[in-house]
Design a protein around this nucleic acid. Structure first.
Lengths: 222, 222
DNA sequence: ATAATTTTTTAGATTTGTCTAAATTATTTT
DNA sequence: AAAATAATTTAGACAAATCTAAAAAATTAT
């Protein structure tokens, strides 16, 4: 079974919006995809006839098991391309997404599996998000937000939950990138800002608004 | 200016059909694209309003200078992807075309120029066809069809003008691939078949129908 | 619990690219 | 040069994905 670019975009967006439980609403999805709610309703009917989601009108919806499988395939393609663009073509971190949005819709299982091998079966993309394998399995880091780690423990940045240009600007300014090792030196309870230190450099402050999007893991001794 | 996948496919097909002069006909193009003539007429009107071709109804058509420029851009993308698939992902010669057909429509100038650099600015794709550079310039081998070369002169295969599975089957059977060095030992005037020898191997026969698609160049001493 | 508001769906239209069938123009044959 | 044939275009339809405007259902507020 293959799906149109449009169908794939809806499936992927629903996957990202639906957590482990709870329903996605029409308006949420229309905001995410920048379409009108009426268009969402049309596509939901279509995806329902294709048996990818549970949907009763006015009741919200979620992908079923088949739908999630399809979504993981799309995410696999997206993240492998992001890895390729970043690692091989030296695209900067914030440029990869837009191009990967297009590449992910190229239909060829063989292409993706060969690309995976060529890249060395990476398990995480340049944003630190896990890349599903051929079976749709995803590796998980035990990751923690820097707002929640103990003081003076050096950890490695492995995920950034907000990738707007504004956010990336702040990260670039403070030399934070995927894999950066940092420690929290102090927490200011007044505004929940954090004092961060990278290696032996001068410590600096991150606001709570920024800090809550930065996730770290224990340093990999593999 | 960007063009839809469909528009790009028409532009590319017209480019391939129109030689240095002479008109392309509606039926030719509809056969090439496997659409109905009526669909071709519709698209011609559209491409005419976009000023990519000269077209007066019932009179045939050809791309103008702008149209050719667009076509070369599409061909550049196609052939760079073919090179990537073959060289990096180890796709076999006959598998690259179909996937490249999809990849060529991804819109990102930066992607293509970075890919070009990553591949080392190749000038010929795995089929021996030239890859246009950023300015649309194409390198040309001085190539000759094996039906037209002198006897017992070793030359290098650099182009195959027919890439149907049937043709590729024959080539594979006879161990002919891009870069193969061969010589014509004898020409049989009865049916214009050729006796070919590769290195010190046992010579074999190629029919005229096959031979006329195989092109060679002088051996590169660079 | 009724009214007001918000969310979602329906109905009908639009765009792109395709099709069939019929009409028109060009070409070939006699 | 007229008739037959072939090529091309027009007219009208359809599917996919979107939209607007209006109707219906659900939620929130009073």
């Amino acid at each position: 079974m293959t799906y149109s670019t449009s169908e794939e975009n809806y499936i992927k967006a629903i996957y990202h919006l639906q957590g482990d439980e709870g329903m996605v609403t029409t308006n949420e999805l229309s905001a995410e995809l920048k379409t009108r709610p009426a268009s969402v309703t049309d596509m939901l009917k279509k995806l329902k006839t294709k048996k990818l989601l549970n949907y009763e009108k006015y009741q919200g919806f979620r992908l079923n098991s088949d739908g999630r499988k399809v979504a993981l395939g799309i995410i696999r393609r997206h993240r492998l391309w992001e890895f390729f663009l970043s690692e091989k073509l030296k695209f900067s971190w914030d440029e990869v997404h837009e191009v990967a949005e297009q590449l992910e819709h190229v239909k060829s299982k063989k292409l993706i599996d060969k690309l995976d091998g060529y890249l060395g079966f990476p398990r995480f993309d340049p944003h630190g998000d896990p890349i599903p394998d051929q079976q749709g399995k995803i590796a998980t880091h035990e990751r923690v937000c820097i707002t929640a780690i103990p003081l003076s423990q050096v950890m490695e940045v492995c995920h950034v939950g907000n990738q707007t240009p504004e956010m990336l600007d702040i990260l670039k300014h403070n030399h934070i990138t995927m894999g950066t090792r940092l420690e929290v030196k102090k927490k200011f309870n007044f505004d929940n800002s954090l004092e961060i230190r990278i290696g032996r450099h001068q410590p600096f402050i991150l606001s709570e608004a920024v800090a809550k999007h930065i996730w770290v893991k224990k340093i990999d001794r593999s």
